[in-house]
Computed example of a mutant assay.
Amino acid sequence: MEKTFSGRAIELVLGDITRQRVDAIVNAANSTLLGGGGVDGAIHRAGGPAVLDECRTIRAERGECPTGEAVLTGGGGLPARFVIHAVGPVWRGGDQGEPGLLASCYRNALRIAAERGFQSVAFPSISTGIYGYPVSLAASTALTAVASFLSSEAAAPTRVRFVLFDPVTFATYAGALETL
């Protein structure tokens, strides 16, 4: 499924983000940047030690990555050349600034992509795994933030792909994309 905003595409696919051949994939990272479970663990495993080494260097220089922010590393052994590590919020009921923080991590990841001249970026559904963000709310926030960025930033990537791991998440994102 695909929809265009200002000549730039948002595409939804069912699949494995670690297999995407794009300029950068986005990691649903935790603030330590040192790997974890879910998408984060899969990206670190597939990328190999080079990704973790770069994350350690960033952490040594800057400390932990705050929620809503993002940092860039190389892709290591991944098909993607780079990984943008974006830290999404833990769901605490929705009244602790979660929607703004989630939108911020998508915008900050896209800002890095635009600054680097990336044309293609693949995102997972950030914060909807162990962080407990409801997929129906996350999909709308994520797609709105990405569509807004693509429509307003001249250097935005030409293609943003959401790589969704299961059919329920895919269907939820598809419904949200249709309403944009």
Score class of each variant (00 low, 15 high):
residue 82 F to N: 15
residue 122 A to T: 03
residue 165 F to D: 02
residue 36 G to S: 09
residue 139 A to L: 14
residue 157 P to M: 06
residue 5 F to D: 03
residue 86 A to Q: 12
residue 150 L to S: 01
residue 137 L to S: 06
residue 26 V to C: 14
residue 48 G to A: 12
residue 59 R to G: 05
residue 70 A to N: 12
residue 77 G to I: 02
residue 10 I to D: 00
residue 128 T to R: 09
residue 46 A to C: 02
residue 128 T to E: 09
residue 76 G to H: 05
residue 65 C to Y: 09
residue 99 P to L: 02
residue 50 A to F: 14
residue 142 A to L: 02
residue 136 S to V: 06
residue 36 G to P: 14
residue 105 C to H: 08
residue 70 A to C: 13
residue 94 G to D: 11
residue 175 G to D: 05
residue 6 S to C: 07
residue 69 E to Y: 13
residue 80 A to G: 04
residue 120 S to L: 07
residue 138 A to Q: 08
residue 26 V to H: 14
residue 73 T to C: 08
residue 109 A to T: 11
residue 2 E to N: 09
residue 88 G to Q: 10
residue 121 V to D: 04
residue 14 L to G: 07
residue 51 V to W: 04
residue 103 A to Y: 00
residue 142 A to R: 02
residue 174 A to W: 08
residue 56 R to C: 03
residue 147 A to N: 06
residue 12 L to C: 12
residue 28 A to I: 11
residue 101 L to P: 03
residue 73 T to P: 07
residue 23 D to L: 09
residue 177 L to N: 04
residue 134 P to E: 10
residue 146 V to F: 04
residue 101 L to A: 14
residue 114 A to N: 08
residue 174 A to E: 15
residue 67 T to M: 11
residue 125 S to C: 15
residue 170 F to L: 15
residue 129 G to R: 05
residue 60 A to T: 07
residue 27 N to M: 12
residue 103 A to E: 08
residue 81 R to I: 03
residue 72 L to C: 14
residue 57 T to L: 14
residue 163 V to G: 05
residue 54 E to Q: 15
residue 78 L to H: 05
